[in-house]
């Protein structure tokens, strides 16, 4: 880095131009298509819905006797007026947490195995984790519709086993279970990759040293590998938790009568109820939640905790 800066310092005017040439276009693009839309969303949350959908005008039209124009905090009042919306956030958090935990349990051994494999196999093994991403997102969900469907081999098997224990048959599709399976399936690679990049960096000498000091396999894992892998665990968890929090497609396709998450509610405000302001308010709330979680994950995974080899 210092070398770069010394190189740049020489010609400060040309350099300033170069700096703007390089950073200007992406900056401009994102200001227009990311920052402005986010502000519009915030602004929309402060308005009244239009009679037919859309938004009510800000200025009252001439001759309007009464009506709702201008800016308001009513959507926020509405949000806080009923514990219902807190409940749906809580439920989304619970589903996200459960998905994250299951992903972690499934991904950890896999990542560990890849990291401990011979170097020449690692790329292939990682590729095999990423490859399912080559299929379409919806298709990955759809696959579970087939597997969990009432007439599927899997359903028959499960119900035969349950029947043997005298338990009434269950329907797997259109249930919270199906939603959880779908969430885990769609997001699993997001957990494997950061874990692997972290585990790969571990110095095997540490484990050898632990062994020499008499630590058994479990102790070596729990006292050495696991603490060192925490940054990977946290960044992987954030990569799973946050998308699950806003997901509406999985509950939409695999969920049953009770599977509504915050994402479904937001979608419904725009594509069902025609209530843009409230939909925006819900989006703002979700943004706040995500920011809080990101901050937490960043703090937990702060680089100081990684002893580089």
């Amino acid at each position: 880095m210092p070398a770069l800066f010394s190189m740049i310092k020489g010609d400060s005017k040309a350099n300033r131009i170069a700096k703007w040439l390089v950073s200007g276009p992406p900056l401009l693009f994102l200001l227009v298509f990311f920052v402005a839309p986010s502000l519009i969303m915030l602004f929309t949350s402060l308005r009244f819905p239009g009679e037919f959908g859309g938004l009510a005008p800000i200025a009252a039209p001439a001759g309007a006797v009464h009506g709702e124009y201008g800016l308001t905090l009513e959507t926020y009042q509405f949000f806080f007026s009923d514990i219902l919306y807190a409940e749906i956030f809580l439920k989304s958090f619970a589903v996200a947490a459960a998905s994250t935990l299951i992903c972690l349990i499934m991904a950890y051994p896999l990542a560990l195995l890849i990291a401990r494999s011979e170097k020449r196999f690692r790329n292939l093994m990682v590729l095999l984790v990423v490859l399912p991403f080559a299929s379409n997102f919806l298709i990955r969900i759809y696959a579970w519709m087939i597997i969990l469907g009432p007439e599927s081999v899997f359903s028959h098997f499960i119900n035969t086993v349950l029947g043997a224990f005298g338990i009434a048959p269950v329907t797997l599709l259109f249930s919270s279970f199906a939603v959880l399976v779908g969430m885990v399936y769609v997001h699993l690679p997001f957990m494997v990759l950061p874990l692997y990049t972290n585990l790969e960096k571990h110095d095997p000498a540490l484990l050898d040293a632990a062994q020499d000091l008499g630590a058994n396999a479990w102790q070596r894992f729990w006292r050495v590998t696991w603490p060192l892998s925490l940054p990977g665990v946290f960044s992987g968890s954030a990569l799973v938790f946050i998308p699950v929090l806003g997901m509406f497609a999985v509950p939409d396709i695999l969920g049953g009568t009770g599977d509504i998450l915050i994402g479904n509610l937001i979608k419904d405000q725009f594509l069902g109820t025609r209530d843009w302001p409230f939909g925006s308010t819900l989006s703002i709330m979700l943004t706040l939640a995500v920011l809080a979680i990101t901050a937490l994950a960043a703090w937990l995974a702060r680089p100081a905790a990684i002893p580089e080899k």
Partner: peptide
């Protein structure tokens, strides 16, 4: 519409 949407959310979320 807003009220119905809230009822609907309740219907989906609660037992």
């Amino acid at each position: 519409r807003r009220l119905l949407s809230r009822l609907w959310t309740e219907i989906k979320l609660r037992n």
